[in-house]
């Protein structure tokens, strides 16, 4: 069933907002539960059964708080930044195919759009940090910019390598190419390109860095920079940054699912569709949390070294190698 244009737009807006909102709220809950299990705690239990109403209580609390703009901050940019941070994630979701027909816009340059909007996130954190006029925030903002610039490159290199074999930027077509069982997923298509698992690993690391997740959480770095770029934000201003963090994780995990894990295709042949897409998506999200609650934070210069000295050369090498096999085949 393909909806006509205006309805499609409305359906997307409602759907995407609800999806992002629910995800942000319940991923926080999930993260707290998962972290608790890793640490042998029960996690939130008091508000609602198994603490399920906790995100709602937290949301209400954040909404009820004053959005403080302290006198020395840049008033306009300070208010603008939280809005800036969430919008790109919403845009990215427009082209992600959640199911065979569940895609707001079947767009030929879908992947390009995702990366284009994905980068706006950095700008928002930079704005937030800069406008705060707080030394910690400025340090964090500067870190985030150099970090994201550094990790955008290997990520794009990996994706370009993948596109060499796939030959399309349309996310739906990318998924369709991976139909027919686990062995057709890009992750394990080693006969097409023996470097596929390595590519996935690089992509995963870059995804962690791009979404500012531990062990690369330089934007927040709570034990050094208090709350990094978000130090001066209160109430829903902080809440929006928080939501955006989770929205970005969802976008990152979705892209990984589409590119490497066969999108909505079922690994066992039953129930193909959105269900499997979500399973893969949340499995990835879980792994992101697992990494966060296991490892310490890296140093900032090592983070940059990792990208410039290891991931970018590796990505370049993979690109050359793939081009070579394609030529020789």
């Amino acid at each position: 069933m393909i909806l006509p244009e205006p309805y499609r737009l409305i359906a997307y807006l409602v759907g995407a907002l609800a999806f992002v909102g629910l995800n942000a709220a319940y991923l926080v809950w999930l993260e707290r539960k998962v972290a608790a299990r890793f640490q042998r705690r029960p996690g939130p239990t008091e508000v609602g059964p198994a603490g399920l109403l906790q995100p709602i209580a937290d949301g209400l609390k954040l909404l009820g708080k004053q959005f403080v703009v302290w006198p020395h901050a840049d008033r306009v940019l300070f208010r603008l930044a939280p809005a800036f941070v969430l919008a790109p994630a919403l845009m990215c979701l427009a082209v992600i195919p959640f199911g065979h027909a569940l895609c707001a816009r079947d767009f030929n340059l879908g992947l390009l759009l995702v990366f284009a909007f994905g980068s706006v996130n950095v700008l928002a954190i930079l704005l937030g940090g800069w406008a705060s006029r707080n030394k910690y925030s400025v340090i964090a903002a500067a870190r985030v910019v150099s970090q994201n610039v550094a990790y955008e490159i290997p990520m794009l290199l990996v994706v370009t390598t993948l596109l060499l074999t796939a030959g399309t930027m349309n996310l739906r077509e990318l998924v369709q190419q991976q139909a027919g069982g686990v062995w057709n997923w890009n992750l394990v298509k080693v006969w097409v390109n023996p470097l596929m698992p390595v590519l996935f690993l690089i992509f995963y690391v870059c995804m962690l860095a791009e979404t500012n997740r531990a062990p690369f959480d330089m934007a927040e770095a709570e034990s050094e920079l208090v709350a990094g770029a978000f130090t001066e934000y209160a109430g829903m201003g902080f809440g929006l940054f928080f939501m955006a963090e989770y929205a970005n994780i969802v976008v990152g995990a979705s892209v990984a699912t589409v590119l490497f894990l066969g999108g909505w295709h079922s690994p066992v042949g039953v129930m193909p569709g959105t269900f499997w897409f979500l399973v893969k998506l949340y499995a990835l999200v879980f792994s992101v949390m697992w990494v966060r609650w296991t490892f310490p934070r890296t140093q900032f210069y090592r983070l940059l070294n990792l990208s410039w000295k290891l991931l970018i050369p590796a990505g370049l090498g993979a690109l050359l190698f793939t081009a070579l096999i394609l030529k020789l085949r």
């Binding site: 998962v34 299990r37 042998r40 705690r41 239990t45 990494v291």
Partner: peptide
């Protein structure tokens, strides 16, 4: 070493919480 670390936390993940509620 990174994989070992992940294995350690995963093992703890499936144990009972120690918190006294």
């Amino acid at each position: 070493s990174l994989a070992t670390g992940l294995a350690v936390t995963l093992e703890q993940f499936f144990r009972r919480p120690v918190t006294v509620h």
